[in-house]
Amino acid sequence: MTSVPTLPARRRTMRWRDRDALYGYLFSAPAVLGSLAFVIAPLIAVVWYSLHEWNVLANTFTFIGGENYTRMLTDAALHDSLWASLWFSLGVLVLNMTLALALAVLLNQHLPGTTLFRVLFFSPVVVSLVAWTIVWGFLLQADNGVNAFLAALGVTGPNWLRGSVTAMIAVVVVQVFKNVGLNMVLFLAALQGVPEDIGEAARLDGAGAWRRFTSITLPMISPTMLLVGILTLVGSLETFALIDVLTDGGPGTSTTVLVFYLYRQAFEFNQFGYASAIAVLLFVIVLALTLLQWQTRKKWVFHES
């Protein structure tokens, strides 16, 4: 787009550039204005609500400054939910990425039946969440489903949804099985974009399969891993319906993640002001984590050029 030789041509280019900027604004206008109207403005409104005590039932809306935020410091239930969110998101991120990559690698081996398996692994993505959680509710009972299967192997399974640790494991696994297909497809697409000749060259140089995977394939697909990682993390921090149906935040407060706590404050306790403050906190956390992942990308994301 540079070096244009003759003078008249350059002048034309200058005019073209000016007009080009106008096109830039016009092209991006729907997205930018839409974002202002339907993302930024509501966010500002939520910040505004968070400075108020707002009880919808009593119809009170009183300015209380930063009180909702200082309340957060001493709200033990909020702190519990932050820990729950941490474990849940970490679990989903690690398990989802690992499983998605493993499935993608398996499906990239040109094995018989690959097309069929690709559909099977993807199918939960389109199954309704309601049906999905109902079935898993059945499967995770104390002495049936998964545990009946374990018993056949001679293992006594735990009462999944009734122990704090096992309930967390259960919601992580059910969430991952539901959505891993999408990430799997993204990884599969990335793997198919890795040129085969590089791996072949390394193989001839005597590099083993694992070595070829870690030092060639992984770096080549690291940009996909970054994006998939961000999307999965944001998605995990927004998980609500699954927990609502499977554990209702319990036992105790062990699976009450932040969004669930926010929902509870707003729609069960009718404390819209405090819930808005939690919403602001949630937004800040998501933003910070995303920026962190983005900032550290230079360390591990490989660029072809």
Binding site: A29, G34, L36, F38, P42, W48, N59
Partner: peptide, 16 residues
């Protein structure tokens, strides 16, 4: 769109 933004802000900032 601008009027939508405005309407949105007004609606959003209106009190409870």
């Amino acid at each position: 769109l601008a009027s939508l933004v405005l309407a949105g802000t007004l609606a959003a900032c209106g009190s409870g």
